[in-house]
Amino acid sequence: MTDLYAVADFCLIPMGTAEPSVAEYIAECQRVLEKSGLKFKLHGYGTNLEGPWSQVSQAIHDCHAAVHAKGAPRVATDIRIGTRVDREIAPGEGNEGKVKRVEEILAKDQK
């Protein structure tokens, strides 16, 4: 079996830092994701990330390592991952496809 295509949402939480703001740590994680080549989008309480399961989990691992290297003694992460095999998901369109489908349904309400 080939690697499953994963659509994930994760919230990485640096802990034990001197400042209440964790923006510098989250920016470091975003730098890691830029290098991963995966499609991702930062939002207010996490990041959407998609691609082959092994690459998605490696990218989250690499974010942990980078945030620790930046000085966070502890990192906790909440992760939700979805996969499907009943239809093809074009690479990079998993999260956008989900949003688009709901927007299409809501647009019918406007008519």
Rank of each mutant, 00 (worst) to 15 (best):
E19H: 08
L106F: 06
Y25K: 08
V7L: 09
D9P: 02
K39V: 15
P52W: 02
D109I: 05
K39L: 10
P73T: 00
F40G: 12
A6C: 13
H61M: 11
D109T: 07
P14M: 11
L49K: 05
G82F: 03
M1V: 14
F40R: 04
M1K: 11
N95Q: 07
L12K: 01
G71S: 09
V22M: 05
C63A: 13
M15T: 08
D78R: 05
E28T: 13
K41H: 14
A23P: 00
N48G: 11
K41W: 04
V56D: 03
R84K: 07
I89H: 00
V56E: 02
V22Q: 06
I26Q: 01
Y5W: 05
L33S: 09
Y5L: 12
A107K: 15
L38K: 02
G16A: 10
E24F: 00
E24T: 08
C11I: 00
E103M: 14
A66H: 04
G97D: 07
C29P: 04
L106A: 10
L106D: 04
R87I: 02
V32S: 13
A66N: 02
R74K: 12
E34V: 12
Y5A: 10
S57D: 00
A59Q: 04
A72C: 11
L4Y: 10
E103G: 04
F40I: 06
C29A: 15
G94R: 00
E104Q: 15
K108T: 06
V67G: 09
I60Y: 02
E104R: 15
H43R: 00
V67Y: 05
G51N: 03
T83K: 00
T17R: 08
A8F: 01
A23T: 12
T2G: 13
A27M: 10
R74G: 08
P14W: 04
E24Q: 06
L4N: 12
L4M: 12
K98R: 07
A8C: 12
R74S: 12
A76N: 05
D62H: 05
E50C: 09
N95P: 09
R80N: 14
G71F: 06
V56C: 05
L106Q: 08
P14A: 11
H68E: 08
Y25M: 09
K98V: 15
A66I: 08
E19M: 10
G71R: 02
D9F: 10
Y45W: 06
A8N: 01
Q110Y: 04
V102P: 01
M1Q: 13
Q58K: 11
L4S: 14
G94D: 03
R101Q: 13
A72W: 09
Q110D: 10
R74F: 11
A66E: 03
F40W: 15
I105L: 14
E103C: 13
A107T: 07
L12V: 14
E103S: 14
R74V: 12
L12G: 07
D78H: 09
V7F: 01
D109N: 03
V56S: 06
G44S: 15
V99W: 00
L38H: 01
N95G: 10
E24S: 13
R31M: 09
G71N: 05
E104D: 15
